[in-house]
């Protein structure tokens, strides 16, 4: 009976994107921590996470089964340009902006998940107050 709520496309998508946002926060933490380490190359989530997610939603729709084995991964960012003579490619300003954007994204996705759970509560109790 409660399946349809947790099977909702938005809920499943938000779950995957939350995973991605958490991993990206780790990547940004690592980038800023190593902003002065010689030779460090900035890392980010691999680009194929977004494209693969888009492809799967387009062909199979967003459901628990279609997204089950899709996991975000970290890799060195091949497009980052070197900004220091020692080969480091971290631009702290960009990382901080990216971190803020990522946090907003995380908050939004967490709200989407919350909203789905709250809907279920309303269905069970018939009341909107928690």
């Amino acid at each position: 009976m409660i399946d349809p709520i947790f099977q909702s496309g938005n809920y499943q998508l938000a779950r995957k994107l939350l995973d991605g946002a958490v991993l990206r926060q780790e990547a940004i933490a690592s980038n800023i921590a190593n902003s002065e380490t010689p030779g460090y190359r900035r890392m980010d989530i691999t680009g194929d996470f977004a494209s693969e997610l888009r492809a799967r939603v387009a062909t199979m729709g967003a459901s628990a089964t279609s997204l089950a084995d899709l996991q975000p991964h970290l890799a060195e960012d091949p497009h980052a340009r070197t900004v220091r003579p020692d080969g480091n490619s971290v631009e702290v300003e960009n990382e901080l902006l990216e971190m803020n954007r990522n946090t907003m994204e995380y908050n939004f996705m967490a709200d989407v998940v919350s909203y789905n759970i709250k809907q279920l509560r309303v269905a069970i109790t018939g009341r909107t107050t928690a």
Binding site: E26, A33, N34, E36, Y40, Q71, H73, L74, A75
Partner: peptide
Amino acid sequence: QSGAVRGSAAPTAV
């Protein structure tokens, strides 16, 4: 160590 996936990196401390 990062997971079994090849080519994936793990966050590094300093």
